[in-house]
Amino acid sequence: MIPVGLPHFLVLSAVLFVLGIFTMLTRKNAIAVLMGIELILNAANINFVAFTRYGAVNFGGQMAAIFVIVIAACEAAVALAIVLNLYRRSQTISVTEANKLHD
C-alpha cells in the first residue's frame, strides 16, 4: 500500500468537488444548490491546505483557505437572504420555477 501523500489528498478533493458539481446540477431546491457550492469550496480548501503541507508555499495556501472560508460565509449569508426573499415573494425556492425577485 502506497503511503498517504499529496495525490491522496488531491484525489479526495477531486471526489468532493465532483459531488458538489453533481449536487449543484441535479437539485432543484436552491438551498441544496448552496450545499453543493459549499462542497466545492471545501474541496478547493483541501487542495490549498494539502499544497501548503507538501509544497514550499509557506502558509500562503492556508491564508488563501482562510479567505475562502470568509468569502463562503459572506456568500451563504447573502444567498440565504435572497432565498428567503424569493420564498416570501413567490412561495417557491425551486431554481427551475423562480423567475423574478421583484414585482
Binding site: 438551498i31 448552496l34 450545499m35 459549499e38 471545501n42 472560508i69 463562503a72 460565509a73 451563504a76 449569508a77 440565504l80 432565498v83 428567503l84 420564498y87 425556492i93
Partner: peptide, 16 residues
C-alpha cells in the same frame, strides 16, 4: 462552517 454556515442553511431549510 459548522457553527455559522450550516446553521444558516438549516435555518433556510426550516423557513422555506
Amino acid at each position: 462552517y459548522v457553527g455559522g454556515i450550516l446553521i444558516l442553511l438549516v435555518f433556510g431549510v426550516m423557513l422555506t
